[in-house]
Amino acid sequence: MHATKQQHDFEPKIVSFVCTWCTYAGADLAGTSRMQYPANVRVIKFPCTGRIDPVFILKAFQKGADGVLVSGCHPGDCHYMAGNFHARRRFAAFRKLLEFVGVDLARLEFSWVSAAEGGKWVEVVTGLTESIRAMGPMTEFKELKTEEHWSGQLETAELKEAYDSIP
């Protein structure tokens, strides 16, 4: 039942921040139902989308993510009544900010996936993985990490190498 895994030149790293009540349970359902989806997504669970600070998204990109997915309960289904409503506004604003500083919004996706929507989880993750694979690696933040103010630039090759390899 395992389809032969296709070989790709580039496997994107995607970080997904999900709420424990809906999307995490949805992803779990996809797993227990033996649905296949790309292993490119690293799932990090939170109590609620309301706990997902925009800084986490930024940090994920800084640490080398090629894409970020944020997913939680559908409006009205929040375990804490309104966490996802607050999150919705915050993310609406944050994506505009990221876009304005020059991040391609195709790398940042949001979805509502309920505990019953294992199929939707597979669809969202597969779609995002494929589109990011097509876009190639996210280079902006990675390049920025290795940059120095001229005064502190190191000239030796060994150090440069040691330095570049730091995650």
Binding site: V55, L58, K59, Q62, L97, V101, F141, H149
Partner: peptide, 20 residues
């Protein structure tokens, strides 16, 4: 949350967080 060193990486993060 944000690197405190005045390097391009931390600076970018700082200004994004500040604006947010």
């Amino acid at each position: 949350a944000v690197e405190t060193t005045p390097r391009p990486a931390g600076n970018m993060a700082w200004h994004i967080v500040r604006a947010m």
